[in-house]
Design a protein around this nucleic acid. Structure first.
Length: 742
DNA sequence: TAGATACAGCCTATC
DNA sequence: GCTGTATCTA
C-alpha cells in the first residue's frame, strides 16, 4: 500500500510548526515566540483534526481570551476549509463557561435568566454591603476591595477556601465576611460576576454527585487554548478538569509575553505545564517571520535580563535591517513633534500609515500625539478608551432591559429609578432598600409592597406606581413584541430618549445615536436574554482598520498585532517601568514591565524607534525623569543612538525622578494655545468640549463668583492665595476663578 | 430633592 | 488637570 500524500495545508509549515499541528494526542505545549506563526499553527491544527482525523467540530473546544481572537480564528479556519465550521465550541473562557452555566445553573442556586454583572455593578454592590456593615468606604475603597475578591476568584477561592492569613486587617478584618455577604447578595439578585462564570462551573464539575463533568468528557475529545501564559488559576482548573477526559489538550503561549499578572494571570501555569500534565510534549516555535535581525536582537537582549524563563532562542532568515533608533528629547511635546516628523518622512517614502503604530505605556501619553497629528493633519485612530457598552447611555438603556428580563435586578432598578429625573431622591431609595432587606424581597417588589401598605408619600407613590405599571406592561410584551421594538418602546415611554434629546450638551446627539445603534444591534438576536448575555460577554468594538491611519494604542493593546514601523515613546524610569508596578510587585513587577518592552519591540517588522523625554507633564504638574533602566539593557550593536547633547550620558545619570520641574511660562507650556486643539480632539472623540483653565501668576487680577475681584499673591500648584478687594485674604482653587482683563 | 462646592485620586484592561 | 463623588445648602 502506498502512503497517501500529506495534505496540502501542511505544505507551508516549518518542521516545528508541523510537529505542533500533527501532535494531536496527549498534552502539548507550544511555546510560540513573537512572530513565529502561532495563529497559523492553531488554525492549521484545527483543520488537520477535522480533515485528517475526522473529528467533528462539536468535539473540539477552542478557548481564547478575547472575542477578537476567537473571531480571527473562526475566519481563518473558514478560509482554509473553504466553508464556515458548524458546531465548534469556540469562544472566550467566559463565553464558553456562560454557555455551560445556562444549562447547569440550578446546581449552584441560580435561575437560568441570571444576570451577568459588569465591573461597575460589582463595585456598587460591594459598596452597599460595606455601608450596611458600617465599614468606612473612604478608608477602604470599594474599588480596591472588589479587586481583592476578584483576585480570590481568579485563584478559584470561594469564601470557604480563603485562609485567614490571606485576609489581614483589610476592612477592619472583615474582608472575608464581606466576600461571603457579597456572594450571598449575588445569589439573592440571581446574578453572578465574570469570575463566577468559571467558578460556578468548577464547583459543578467537582461535585461528583452530578454527571456534568463526565458528560463534557464524552463530548470534548480535543481542547485547544490560545495565550496560555495569560490564564489564571481558575481558568487552569477549568481546563484541567475538562482535559481529564481524553487528556488531549494543546496550549499555545509565550512566557515572555505574559503581561497580565496584575489582573490575576499566573505565569506559573505555563512554567509548570510539564508537571501539571504528565507526559506533556513541549514544542518550541523559534523561527521568527516578522522582524528584521536588529529588531529581534534588541528584543532578545532586553528579555534576557529576566530570570526563570522557559527559554527560547528566536532566529530569523531575514536581513539585519535598520538598527533600532534611540532618541532622547526635552519634553513630551518635543517627543511627539519629533515622532510626528519621522512619520511624515515615512509617509513621503510611501510607507502606509496603517502600518505605523505608536505604542504607549499609559493612555495619558496619547494626548500629546493626537495634538501633533491634528496640527499636521495626519490621520490617526486611537484604540482603547471607553467601549461601546461602557458608555453611560448604553448602560442606562441596558438597565431598563435587564429589569424587564429580570425584575429582581436591584442594581438595574437603582440605576434608572431616577433617570430620567422623576423626583425620586436618595431618601426614598434608602427607605426602599431598608424595606427590601427587612422582608428579604427585591427592590421591585418592595416598591409594590410599600405602596400597598401606604408607606410612601403620595407624590412618590404616584411616580413609582406609574413606573411599576410601565414595567408590567413592558414585561407582558416580551413574548409577543420583537425585542428591538420593545426596546424602542421602553426608551420612548420611559422618557429616556427624550432626556437626551432635550439635553443641551454637545455630546447628547451622539448619545441618541448610540442608543439607536444599540437597538440596531438587538435585531440580530432571537431573544432579549440572549442579547443581554451577548452584550455582557461578546460585544466588541469593531474597529474600522480599513482606512490609512496611524494607530495609537497601549502596549497591552498591541499584543498579537504587528506593524511595519513602531514608535515606543515614554521610556522613562517611573513611567516605564511604571513606578507603581515596582512598588507593588518588586522584581516580579519589573520583569513583567520588561516583558511589556519585549512585546512592544517585537511588534515591528522593519523599524522600531524608542524615545524618552527629560520632562513630562503628569496630572497637571511637571516631572523630570531619567531614561528608563531598559534603555541601558538595549544591546549596543543593534542600537543607533540619536540623542540631543547634554540630555543623556550613560555614565552621568543623576537620579532626579520625582523632582518637580518648574515650567517655563512661555507659550509652549501654558494651556493657552491648546484651546482650539482641545476642541478638535473632543469633536473627533465625540466627547464634550473641555475648557482648559488658564495658568495663574503672581499679581494676576481675577474674579471669583462669590468673593468678587482680587489679586493673586501666591501660586501653589492649582491653589491660589488671593487678596480680595473686599479685604479678605483667601486660598482658593484656580478652577473657581477667572482671569480678569482690565 | 437638586444644584453648588470641595476634594481625592489617577497605569495597564479581558470578559 | 480632569472626573467622579461626598457633602453642604437653598
Amino acid at each position: 500500500m502506498q502512503q497517501p500524500p500529506p495534505p496540502s495545508y501542511l505544505d507551508d509549515l516549518n518542521p516545528s510548526q508541523r510537529e505542533a499541528v500533527e501532535a494531536v494526542e496527549g498534552a502539548v505545549l507550544v511555546l510560540a515566540g513573537a512572530g513565529t506563526g502561532k495563529t497559523r499553527v492553531l488554525t492549521t491544527r484545527l483543520v488537520h483534526l477535522i480533515q485528517t482525523h475526522q473529528v467533528f467540530p462539536s468535539q473540539i473546544l477552542s478557548v481564547t481570551f478575547t472575542n477578537k481572537a476567537a473571531l480571527e480564528m473562526k475566519e481563518r479556519v473558514a478560509e482554509t476549509l473553504g466553508q464556515p465550521v458548524e458546531g465548534w465550541w469556540l469562544g472566550t473562557f467566559h463565553a464558553l463557561a456562560a454557555r455551560m452555566l445556562r444549562y447547569h445553573c440550578p446546581l449552584v442556586g441560580l435561575e437560568s435568566n441570571y444576570t451577568i454583572l459588569d465591573p461597575d455593578d460589582q463595585i456598587r454592590l460591594l459598596k452597599q454591603i460595606m455601608e450596611a456593615e458600617n465599614i468606612d468606604t473612604k478608608k477602604w475603597a470599594p474599588k480596591m476591595l472588589i479587586s481583592i475578591i476578584n483576585r480570590w476568584k481568579d485563584r478559584a477561592l470561594v469564601p470557604d477556601d480563603v485562609s485567614l492569613d490571606d485576609v489581614g486587617d483589610v476592612a477592619n478584618g472583615k474582608m472575608l465576611h464581606l466576600y461571603r455577604l457579597y456572594q450571598n447578595r449575588l445569589k439573592a439578585l440571581n446574578a453572578c460576576d465574570f469570575g463566577d462564570l468559571l467558578l460556578h462551573m468548577i464547583t459543578i464539575f467537582k461535585d461528583m454527585d452530578n454527571q456534568v463533568l463526565a458528560d463534557y468528557h464524552r463530548r470534548f475529545r480535543y481542547i485547544m487554548v490560545d495565550e496560555y501564559q495569560d490564564t489564571n488559576v481558575a481558568q487552569y482548573l477549568w481546563l484541567r478538569l475538562l482535559a481529564q477526559g481524553t487528556g488531549n489538550i494543546c496550549c499555545v503561549g509565550d512566557d515572555d509575553q505574559s503581561i497580565y499578572g496584575w489582573r490575576g494571570a499566573e505565569v506559573g501555569n505555563i512554567l509548570k505545564f510539564e508537571q501539571d500534565f504528565v507526559g506533556a510534549k513541549v514544542i518550541r516555535l523559534e523561527q521568527n517571520y516578522r522582524s528584521t535581525g536588529h529588531i529581534l536582537a534588541t528584543a532578545s537582549g532586553i528579555i534576557s535580563y529576566n530570570q526563570g524563563r522557559l527559554g527560547k532562542t528566536l532566529w530569523s532568515e531575514q536581513e539585519q535591517g535598520e538598527k533600532v533608533k534611540l532618541r532622547g528629547l526635552w519634553d513630551g511635546q518635543a517627543e511627539a513633534r519629533w515622532i510626528t516628523e519621522e512619520i511624515e518622512q515615512l509617509q513621503r517614502q510611501q510607507w502606509p500609515l496603517s502600518q505605523i503604530a505608536i505604542l504607549v505605556r499609559a493612555s495619558f501619553l496619547m494626548r500629546e500625539f493626537e495634538e501633533q497629528f491634528i496640527k499636521q493633519n495626519i490621520p490617526y485612530r486611537v484604540i482603547g478608551g471607553a467601549r461601546f457598552y461602557e458608555r453611560l447611555e448604553i448602560r442606562d438603556a441596558l438597565a431598563y432591559l435587564r429589569l424587564v428580563a429580570q425584575p429582581s435586578d436591584d442594581l438595574a432598578l437603582e440605576r434608572i429609578i431616577n433617570t430620567p429625573k422623576r423626583g425620586i431622591g436618595s431618601t426614598t431609595v434608602q427607605n426602599l432598600q431598608t424595606h427590601a432587606r427587612t422582608y428579604s424581597m427585591s427592590l421591585y417588589v418592595a416598591i409594590q409592597d410599600m405602596a400597598q401598605r401606604g408607606e410612601l408619600r403620595a407624590k412618590v407613590n404616584a411616580t413609582l406606581m406609574a413606573l411599576v405599571d410601565s414595567f408590567e406592561r413592558w414585561k407582558s410584551l416580551v413574548e409577543t413584541l420583537p425585542h428591538a421594538e420593545l426596546a424602542t418602546q421602553i426608551l420612548e415611554e420611559s422618557g429616556y430618549i427624550q432626556m437626551w434629546k432635550d439635553d443641551k450638551s454637545p455630546d447628547s446627539a451622539g448619545r441618541v445615536e448610540n442608543l439607536k445603534e444599540l437597538i440596531n444591534a438587538m435585531q440580530d438576536f432571537d431573544s432579549l436574554p440572549e442579547f443581554l448575555e451577548h452584550i455582557a460577554l461578546v460585544m466588541d468594538n469593531q474597529d474600522n482598520k480599513s482606512r490609512d491611519q496611524v494607530t495609537i494604542m497601549t502596549l497591552h493593546g498591541a499584543k498579537g498585532l504587528e506593524f511595519d514601523a513602531v514608535f515606543l515613546p515614554g521610556w522613562e524610569d517611573g513611567l516605564f517601568p511604571s513606578q507603581r508596578s515596582l512598588d507593588e510587585l518588586g522584581n516580579k513587577g519589573l520583569e513583567e514591565e520588561r516583558r511589556l518592552a519585549y512585546v512592544g519591540i517585537t511588534r515591528a517588522r522593519k523599524r522600531s524607534t524608542i524615545t524618552y523625554a527629560a520632562n513630562r507633564r503628569m496630572y497637571g504638574s511637571w516631572i523630570s525623569s531619567i531614561p528608563s533602566r531598559f534603555v541601558d539593557e538595549l544591546p549596543a550593536p543593534s542600537i543607533e543612538v540619536e540623542t540631543e547633547t547634554g540630555l543623556y550620558k550613560p555614565q552621568d545619570k543623576t537620579p532626579s525622578y520625582g523632582q518637580t520641574y518648574t515650567p517655563r511660562t512661555g507659550d509652549n507650556f501654558s494651556g493657552k494655545n491648546n484651546d482650539l486643539i482641545n476642541k478638535l480632539i473632543q469633536e473627533r472623540r465625540g466627547g464634550k468640549t473641555q475648557t482648559t483653565s488658564p495658568s495663574f501668576q503672581k499679581d494676576n487680577r481675577i474674579t471669583h463668583p462669590k468673593f468678587g475681584e482680587g489679586t493673586v499673591v501666591h501660586v501653589e500648584g492649582n491653589k491660589l492665595d488671593i487678596q480680595f478687594d473686599a479685604g479678605e485674604m483667601k486660598r482658593v482653587l484656580g478652577s473657581f476663578v477667572e482671569k480678569f482683563e482690565e
